[in-house]
Amino acid sequence: MTEPLLRVTGLRKHFPTKGGLLSRNRSVVKAVDGVSLEVAGGETVGLVGESGCGKSTTGRTMLRALEPTSGRIEFDGRDITGVGREELRKLRREMQMIFQDPFSSLNPRHTVGTILAAPFEIQGIKAPNGVKAAVRDLLSRVGLSPEHYNRYPHEFSGGQRQRIGIARALAVQPRLIVCDEPVSALDVSIQAEIINLLQDIQAETGIAYVFVAHDLSVVRHISDRVAVMYLGKVMESATSDELYERPLHPYTNALLSAAPLPDPVQQRAREKIVLQGDLPSPSDPPSGCVFRTRCPMAQQVCAEVTPAYAEHSPGHWVACHFPEDEQLAA
């Protein structure tokens, strides 16, 4: 297999939290706790899981927008875990990020033209026909019209703002974009447009995406491979079709079962696994398997031994003592 574009190994990001003002027992939030992931050039890797499971932190840490607590990040075969500021600035040309709410990251006092010209200036990118032409070109690539050049962010709808966010990320011609819930706040029809746009851009430029979302059907639609996260750890990963057709982890199963299908007969007929209780606190995760407190399959061993994240069948990794298919066999 060829070298992946991005490889993270054993990535951890712990946030220290203060207890009371004076209390000495400071705890850490284990937002990301040993995530290993590979992204090949031109592919889309989906990251799903309940809010607070560490998806955004994983995305930000693998771009070195957050300093990892431990672990290793390789980009294009090069270890970038410890590279300095100047190197990091150069890396920003290769790796970009887009967010759920692009509005908060767009300066309200700048026109779209100024916002999109900034990456060219900061990164010193040459534009053969001038920056202005390059920006107009970007605008039309993301489906905005060049006459939007002189408008301000507040004059745009949610979907259009997301397009501006995408245009800004594309300005530096990156090879990887981490998309952090880019469509979660949008209505379905607008969401569909943005997903189509992202796919068109990928077909055109061969860019790779890490696509973070909590909507399983969206993630399945856009991703080649999907990783399911729970409490800072990857529980299962496989190609999209494999994962959705043959989920092995009870958590994946529960997630799939919880996502309602827009089809009344199917939705009412299917058997549902309703998880009990809430997500445990990431500063005090359960012993053994972190999912065991809500797992319908949990046994004694789950509390004692942390299940290994192992390749169960080619390309299908899972961290569970009782993967689903073995139960069926038993």
Binding site: V188, S189, Q191, A192, I195, L216, S217, V218, R220, H221, I222, S240, D241, Y244, L256, A259, L261, P262, D263, Q266
Partner: peptide, 10 residues
Amino acid sequence: SMPRIGSPRG
């Protein structure tokens, strides 16, 4: 316009 878990991907 809704992506569906059961429909063909891509």
